[in-house]
Design a binder for these strands. Structure first.
Lengths: 152, 152
DNA sequence: ATACGTGCAAAGCGTTTGCATTTCT
DNA sequence: AGAAATGCAAACGCTTTGCACGTAT
């Protein structure tokens, strides 16, 4: 685990909390770290389960609320996903996603060329662009295998 | 309303149903048409509400089930969205989205250059790509105005 | 007669909210 | 003391499921 990277991000959070005058409670920090330490794009509930043994007594609502606070601060973001559950993403750098339309699995991909896209103008929609993501949508290997054995 | 376009899509659905041996019930057809006739990316419930006056007695579950069937047939798709509700998209042609991270609004954008991206290889993930979408994420004008009046 | 879609109601999850309590300043 | 976050439980909203009924082959 690259702890140095996590520490840098936590320090960034500390700084932003100070600037925005948002108290950085123990729970807030731990929820943030738990998201950082997962490489994937978990739901609030998955993080709640992850944290239960480390923080007995932690309330599910606290996880939900803190993820929302962190999102509004801009230190994490909601991942765009085809499912009916909110997923969170701790990466701030430009990156993109492989999305399985069958099981919803989501994997980060990094690609220099994609990062430097010439974006279309959005003036006609009066839309302020913060960042962008490219989503490659299709079927992951696991789901392909499953459908193969269903119809061989 | 461009009815010709809708008719062509419905004919495509008819053909695919015949090929796949999937019965095209009245409800199925009407749910599909209702999605086509909206320019946006509605939830199953929004479509259910839209259809209630045209089809009294229609069950909510029927709408949900048919949207799922249509998705599996590949004539519509789930839209990737940062919210906790499933949204559907009737467009099959390559296109992209403006997504408001504040209210979840989603607008189609068409851009030739984006359609011809050189995609990164996904062999290392053993992932089969069906299509791709570029999402420009940010804040729509309405939400910008709201936050302006909150903190002027 | 069989298979399948539909309507209806209940159950199942994920998420939000209200409120008493605790924590921090 | 006052403001704000937490824990807990209830409420809420979206989605799925089980079952009886209807429909089409």
């Amino acid at each position: 685990m690259d702890t140095g990277w996590v520490r840098a991000r936590v320090q960034d959070l500390e700084r932003r909390c100070r600037e925005a005058d948002v108290p950085l409670t123990h729970q807030r920090r731990v929820v943030f770290e738990a998201l950082l330490e997962r490489g994937d794009h978990p739901t609030a509930d998955q993080l709640f389960v992850d944290l239960q043994e480390a923080l007995p007594g932690l309330a599910r609502a606290t996880v939900y609320r803190n993820l929302e606070v962190l999102t509004e601060m801009g230190v994490i973001s909601r991942a765009c996903h085809p499912g009916a559950v909110v997923r969170y993403d701790a990466r701030l750098e430009p990156h993109h996603h492989l999305v399985c339309l069958s099981c919803g699995a989501m994997v980060d991909i990094v690609d220099e060329r994609l990062d430097h896209l010439e974006l279309p103008s959005t003036v006609e929609h009066d839309f302020e662009v913060r960042d962008f993501r490219v989503q490659l949508r299709g079927t992951c290997s696991r789901c392909r295998e499953r459908s193969d054995e269903a119809a061989p």
